[in-house]
Simulated scan of single mutants.
Amino acid sequence: MDKEIILKPSFSVRSSMKGTYYILYKPLNIVILSFLLASAIFGLSDYFFNILGSTNKTNRDFPFFGLVIILLPFFIYLLTYKAVKKQINNNPRIKEDIKYIFNIEYFQEKGETFEVKHFWKNIIKIVEKKDMFLFYIGKNSAMLLQKTDLKDNQYNELKQLFNSIDIKKSLKS
């Protein structure tokens, strides 16, 4: 495949948040957070049942740990949202007219004041999610391409290109 595929990416806080969660918060972390949340809810429900059925007023210490566990996912989401929003709003490159260029040798980001080539041999892996592609350029660092940015037959052309490249990939059939 000698042809180049040129795309105009769009950037939004919502898509960047999804990409961040795909990269940073692996399914194992979600299982651990779910377990902690379930144990916190169980602990709080036990506390409230003890208050309702107990005549002993000394057994009413509020389980602070349970409350912290319930609020922890909210704070993680809030901090991640603020960091991603700040990163998008303060990045001067995003305000430029950016194009992604794909060919058999590399993936290129080209803007008005910059040009970065990511050679396929340096890309760790390509992961396809429901609404985006993630190009891992580091263990916890990835470029994302939303599928909504693809026009006409570009999705099939990209899949064909990715399948022709010798790189670790997780693509949907």
Rank of each mutant, 00 (worst) to 15 (best):
Leu52Tyr: 13
Phe114Pro: 11
Phe74Gln: 03
Asn90Pro: 03
Asp46Ala: 09
Tyr81Pro: 01
Leu67Arg: 02
Met17Gly: 11
Lys86Met: 00
Ser10Asn: 14
Val13Leu: 04
Ser10His: 15
Phe162Ile: 04
Ile98Glu: 05
Leu52Glu: 09
Asn140Asp: 14
Tyr22Met: 08
Glu115Asn: 14
Leu24Asn: 10
Lys169Ser: 06
Asn56His: 11
Lys130Tyr: 08
Tyr21Ile: 06
Lys121Met: 00
Pro63His: 02
Lys121Leu: 00
Tyr22Asp: 09
Gly19Gln: 01
Asn122Glu: 12
Ser16Phe: 01
Asp61His: 14
Lys151Leu: 13
Lys86Tyr: 06
Lys172Phe: 06
Leu144His: 14
Gly66Phe: 13
Glu115His: 11
Thr113Ala: 11
Phe114Gln: 08
Thr113Gln: 12
Trp120Cys: 07
Phe107Ala: 04
Ile32Tyr: 04
Leu78Glu: 00
Asn103Ile: 04
Asn50Lys: 07
Tyr100Cys: 02
Glu112Ser: 10
Arg14Tyr: 14
Phe42Trp: 11
Met132Glu: 02
Tyr25Asn: 09
Leu144Ala: 06
Thr148Asp: 15
Met17Phe: 13
Ser12Ile: 08
Pro73Val: 06
Gln146Leu: 11
Ile123Thr: 04
Leu78Arg: 07
Asn163Ile: 01
Gln154Met: 02
Asp97Val: 05
Thr80Ile: 13
Lys125Trp: 04
Met17Trp: 10
Ser164Lys: 08
Ile69Pro: 01
Ser39Ile: 08
Gln146Gly: 05
Ser45Gln: 13
Phe74Arg: 02
Leu158Lys: 08
Asp46Asn: 14
Ile32Ala: 01
Leu171Val: 08
Ala142Trp: 01
Thr55Gln: 00
Lys129Asn: 05
Ser15Tyr: 12
Lys3Pro: 03
Tyr81Ala: 05
Leu67Pro: 08
Pro63Val: 00
Asn90Ile: 05
Gly43Asn: 11
Lys8Pro: 03
Gly43Trp: 00
Asp166Glu: 15
Leu44Val: 03
Ser10Asp: 12
Asn153Phe: 02
Asn122Ala: 06
Ser164Tyr: 05
Thr113Met: 13
Glu112Ala: 07
Asp2Gly: 04
Phe42His: 07
Lys18Asn: 14
Leu52Gln: 10
Ile41Tyr: 10
Phe62Pro: 02
Lys125Arg: 12
Phe107Gly: 03
Val116Arg: 15
Glu115Gly: 03
Asn156His: 10
Glu128Tyr: 12
Ile94Asn: 04
Lys117Val: 02
Ala38Trp: 05
Glu115Leu: 11
Asp131Phe: 02
Ala142Leu: 01
Phe75Asn: 04
Phe48Ala: 07
Asn122Gln: 10
Asp2Leu: 09
Ile70Ala: 09
Asn59Ile: 12
Val68Arg: 04
Ser164Val: 01
Phe35Ile: 14
His118Glu: 07
Trp120Thr: 04
Tyr22Gln: 11
